[in-house]
Design a protein around this nucleic acid. Structure first.
Length: 283
DNA sequence: ATAGGCACCTGGTGGC
DNA sequence: TGCCACCAGGTGCCTA
């Protein structure tokens, strides 16, 4: 489900009800997600004030006033939903608990944050805020695609020795952090690069267009509140709508949207993931 | 160091 | 309706 735009959408939804508020109560309904929860997670969170919500790649990081930082990853199927009356702004009633509501956090302002994740590929961890970027899950991440460190010359260097398809390279979080299957497919379509082209065989002139294409597709998706396929919701329960703007993802057999192109969108499987592309427009 | 494949887990969909 | 195969937004780990 959640790639960078969806995670950023969730972060933006959570920030107004979490930042500055204190965690009043935490229910942890199972011992683990992908990994065991950290020791005494509920006790370590209870009573802490959330200073700031940040995002790094597909991780949400909540800095607490106790010198610890809560890390949240949504995996494939993770959702975070806000309910309750926060800061006098009515969001909505607490819904009945659902299957796979693994962690429920009540804030002292009346907001309830529910983490639901059927497949449990998600994760939560607690670490010292100081040196948090050295956490094993964060340490090897590449630059943020919307940040200043992601540019043409960086990408050229990073891809130069890669004997792998560009599709796989862009999914590699060590090269650039936050892209997933959807937005890689969409970005490659926008610049006319085949997902099967070897990363090192892309001319620098084309990389020059790829960087802004990646930035644009992510920025547009964030503005649309992310993409809602099966289970993604914004934190307020609203659906994102960027899925209506997909040019290729999930459109196998449908007409290419390029003016004058009569080809149909194709699907190939690369390292176990579907790649959608236009065989005529993408070379 | 890099590349490819598997594993983790649940649920939805479509075919028979 | 039931059963089954296949598919899904991620990524750590293992093997060559």
């Amino acid at each position: 489900m959640p790639e960078l735009p969806e995670v950023e959408t969730v972060r933006r939804g959570l920030a107004p009800v979490m930042e500055g508020a204190r965690i009043a109560q935490v229910a942890v309904n199972r011992p683990d997600l992908r990994w065991p929860f950290p020791e005494r997670m509920a006790e370590r969170l209870t009573g802490a004030r959330v200073m700031q919500l940040r995002r790094r790649s597909k991780y949400i990081l909540a800095d607490l006033d106790r010198g610890e930082t809560l890390l949240i990853h949504l995996g494939m199927s993770g959702r975070i939903l806000i309910s309750g009356d926060a800061l006098g702004r009515f969001v909505h009633d607490h819904p009945a608990p659902e299957k796979h509501d693994h962690v429920v956090i009540d804030m002292d302002n009346g907001a309830r944050i529910t983490f639901n994740d059927p497949r449990r590929f998600g994760a939560m961890d607690l670490m010292a805020s100081e040196g948090a970027e050295a956490h094993p899950l964060l340490a090897k991440l590449g630059p943020e695609p919307l940040g200043n460190d992601f540019h043409e010359s960086y990408l050229a260097t990073a891809l130069k020795a890669r004997n792998t398809p560009i599709k796989s390279a862009l999914l590699d979080q060590k090269i650039v952090a936050g892209l997933g299957n959807i937005y890689v497919c969409e970005a490659l379509f926008r610049v006319g690069i085949s997902p099967q082209r070897k990363a090192r065989n892309i001319a620098v002139a084309r990389l020059k267009t790829l960087v802004p294409a990646i930035r644009d597709v992510l920025t547009e998706a964030i503005a649309a509140g992310g993409s809602s396929l099966r289970d993604f919701r914004q934190a307020d329960g609203e659906l994102g709508y960027f899925q209506h703007s997909f040019d290729v993802y999930g459109r196998e057999g449908e007409a290419c949207r390029t003016q004058g192109c009569t080809a149909r969108i194709a699907r190939v499987v690369q390292s176990g993931r579907s790649s959608f592309y236009c065989p005529a427009c993408q070379r």
